[in-house]
Design a protein around this nucleic acid. Structure first.
Lengths: 188, 188
DNA sequence: ACCTGAACACCGTTCAAGT
DNA sequence: ACCTGAACACCGTTCAAGT
């Protein structure tokens, strides 16, 4: 965690970790089969759920997950890859399924809602953290806004998008068919 | 594109590209300042919009984007990183903003909707492509389903999630406040 | 304008051998 | 059980020098 905080994901190499521990690189391979497994262990530390969230609603759980990701450098990217490789179980996902079911959704619809929210939270936060990184590098890209107003805008984009998904979740008490999706998009 | 198709993103190294072109690695650095810039050029080729989509609805545009990403090995991951670094302009995003505005949303709400859909499409497809990759490696992970039924399920997860977001987009004709988000999630 | 050749400073992973 | 030392097969990037 210390190496990650100080060097970011690009600097989180087996050699740097070994150096931090005053140990040879090969020693790490007794504890982890490979780097991805080590990264999965790091991911688990990032996404641990602090308090009991059994009675929280989806928006609160999603915001808490985002806060965990933002609390660690490159948190979204690390968690994203561990998740995609199936090496990480996201406690927040189970909480989201519960929250969705409590609003009256079926099991299948609740799972869809949870996955959709997880994708949104991770995608949004990943994007945001990479922009922060680019800003630190001084990428001279004027499209990147690092002013306080820019930061606030990021948070607002997140909560607006989240509100939209939650609205859709509550709106659709059952999964929509393809035809219905099209109709909805067309109605003015 | 050939090196990507045959070796995937992990195998898309400057050396392999140079070999394919019968050229020294350093020659590539006359054409591109660095690897990320080259990857951005690859991303552009992946996300070009085929037909005119000025009159398409959001669901159609999103599905077309997903198809483009799925058509190239590791397409979602490459595009995701180029996008996050601000090196890629997504034509589909502009189309999505148009589509959202045509349903009566404000400019700000349309932008939020477009970004939310883009995050969902890329996150969902990234996740799916990494699972495919893990399956090819033979990760022996029984949680990964590569049967035809599993593939169909992926497509269904995608369209169900997309339908949910589109429903939320149409539902919220204006951005919701935090209080409204909470209220919505609580009402049964 | 476009490319070569060679180097620099790194990577993840393996494996015999030690204690 | 846990670690060392050394090697293998790679990386991205730079830069003088060529044509």
């Amino acid at each position: 965690m210390r190496v990650l905080a100080e060097n970011g994901l690009p600097g989180l190499s087996m050699r740097r970790i070994a150096d931090e521990l005053d140990v040879q690189v090969s020693a790490l391979y007794w504890h982890f089969p490979n780097k991805q497994a080590l990264l999965a262990a790091v991911s688990e530390r990032i996404v641990v759920e602090a308090a009991d969230s059994s009675d929280a609603d989806a928006a609160v759980i999603a915001t808490a997950l985002r806060d965990r990701l933002l609390a660690h450098r490159d948190g979204a990217e690390i968690v994203s890859s561990s998740l995609a490789l199936g090496l990480l179980d996201l406690p927040a996902r189970a909480s989201l399924v519960d929250a969705a079911r409590q609003t009256g959704l079926s099991d299948a619809a609740a799972a869809t809602a949870a996955d959709t929210i997880v994708h949104f939270v991770i995608g949004c936060t990943f994007h945001e953290q990479q922009r922060m990184h680019a800003a630190v590098i001084g990428a001279t890209d004027p499209s990147v806004d690092i002013t306080p107003a820019g930061i606030a805008e990021s948070a607002d984009d997140f909560s607006s998008g989240l509100a939209m998904i939650v609205a859709g979740m509550c709106d659709g008490r059952r999964p929509l068919t393809e035809a219905e999706t099209t109709k909805r998009a067309r109605r003015s």
